[in-house]
Design a protein around this nucleic acid. Structure first.
Lengths: 160, 160
DNA sequence: TATTGTTATACTCTATAACTATA
DNA sequence: TATAGTTATAGAGTATAACAATA
């Protein structure tokens, strides 16, 4: 209480850290709303969110080994097995043993998989929340958010 | 293919919807990074993310019935039972039967709960991703994101 | 009859550890 | 021995349905 910075009112017209805190909370709230909308779209495609994300991260033009997909999803290899099981059952992805290293299995997106993947990409790129913003505001927003992700780019300092 | 809008290059210098799609994807990526950081902080407090969010949504100055907490968390009442069980076991929240309507139980944040809740709030308000932005940029970002959430405010049209 | 909180149950998502087949 | 993928298992999170107590 004693070592509190002086501030004006309830709205964060005050110092940087209050403004920043408010911005972060609002970003997370907006992201939560967007995610709910996206998950509804994904469900309509007959996929679960995690399966859709796996399909989204796969490169239709360059088959990935499962290990690499796990890295992109930032999850354990064991999960990828289950996700690819479901994608394969749905006919969207095929496993092919890599002849060069028979331990690896390449994940190949099928023709049907490509079609569904486009719709997943659309679902993940669309939001009604931008409807009230001008072209210039959307452009500004994009620049600022890009600046944030550039700042966070390091997996640096994560000594391991 | 035939009905595609003409565009210049790979970076979305093109039309509004491409810029918007890029902005949405970047927002979600940034939110994901922030969430990972926040969950690490929450774990250090000895809480799980869902339990921390429940504590965060409770009002220390006005005990809520469990049903109302479920509405704020946008989840089923049955989940709240389990979350409050854990908060009560940890000594952070107490259930009190409402004398006015003995079906309801008010959720009261304890003194220890208040202390932890402050730290949860801090964890949810802080992000290293804003480090590279100027005060003005943070302010602009906050305005734009607020405009997004205002746009999404309606639970309107959700006929139910 | 309707509502509050609870219980039982099930599914998704994720992690760890142990296994196999390759290298 | 090290790595890729798999399996078994467990915990967190969430949803639905049925139930007891209360209104």
């Amino acid at each position: 209480m004693a070592h509190r910075t002086i501030r004006r009112a309830d709205s964060p017209e005050g110092n940087r850290s209050e403004l920043a805190g408010d911005a972060i909370r609002r970003i997370m709230q907006v992201a939560s709303t967007i995610q709910q909308d996206q998950e509804a779209d994904i469900t309509r495609l007959g996929l679960t969110p995690a399966v859709a994300r796996a399909l989204y991260e796969l490169d239709p033009d360059r088959p990935l080994p499962a290990r690499e997909l796990a890295e992109q999803l930032r999850c354990d290899r064991s999960n990828v097995t289950a996700l690819v099981d479901r994608l394969e059952t749905a006919g969207l992805v095929e496993r092919r043993i890599d002849p060069a290293d028979r331990r690896q299995k390449s994940l190949v997106v099928t023709t049907a998989g490509r079609r569904v993947r486009v719709r997943v990409h659309q679902a993940m790129s669309d939001s009604r929340l931008l409807a009230g913003l001008s072209d210039q505001e959307i452009s500004d927003l994009r620049v600022l958010v890009t600046k944030m992700s550039d700042c966070g780019c390091p997996e640096v300092g994560e000594a391991e």
